[in-house]
Amino acid sequence: MAILVIAEHDNTSLKPGVTNTVAAAHKIGGDIDVLIAGSHCAAAASAAASIVGVGKVLVADAPYYAMAVAENLAPLVVGLAQNYSHVLAGATAFGKNLLPRVAALLDVMQISDIVAVESADIFVRPIYAGNAFATVQSSDAIKIITVRSTGFDAVAAMGGNGVIENIASATDAGISRVVKQELTKSDRPELAAAKRIVSGGRGLGDGDKYRAVLEPLADKLGAALGASRAAVDAGFVPNDYQVGQTGKIVAPELYIAVGISGAIQHLAGMKESKVIVAINKDPEAPIFQVADYGLVGDLFTLVPELTAAI
């Protein structure tokens, strides 16, 4: 068996989930190659070659791969897929956008968001916002899979000695282009890969209070900031802060939920966290049913007190 991992990167470095996707490939077993398709992406390619267990790093370098447009990447991946039994990517906005397009062109069913590998053709994936887990078996010759990073412990990003090989690019489909990207700038850890997360909900009242109350705590803990859908919809923070069924799926060592009631769609995104702390004024809030430690009271008093005491 041979497995191709489609790496998400920004041409200079790899996204954190790539090492988790490679870990899933290890569970399947077989040779593991990584595709880096980008523009001036040599740095990303050498980072991929350093991942433990990677055999070849295939590099397709073309201007029209710079922004990871699915219409351009899909034909490239389809061309390579014939040489592999499995094609994997992270279940991120990148992987979710690209791989179903690849799967349909190959006439195979994608297996989305796997959290466990049972065998080379049997996988476990959450359904109904993680309220059930389905074990599914694929009958397709090539398995196209997106990997939920929280299901697999990352392999070491350094210490590997993969071989970098340049490959031919496919053509520019010319039917879509990226006009602009507005990325949230932050010195904090990336939400999806953070060890600690401080997350806020509607209970914080508004965006100014969200920042005034939560940022000092996150600073002290070196934590990423997250939010419930309610807080995002109310405009407290940008959309990429959202943790939940349709936002980011996280599993940090410590998740502190402040003023979050705990709708099932939010719990779906964070209940795999190792330790969950909930601070909420409503003792009946569902968040307390999944929290390891619950503290009932006024968050505007308790959170600054907690920040001062850490």
Partner: peptide, 11 residues
């Protein structure tokens, strides 16, 4: 909506 923020595409 993408992971790091927003992206505008023309198709």
């Amino acid at each position: 909506e993408i992971d790091g923020g927003m992206e505008t595409v023309a198709i």
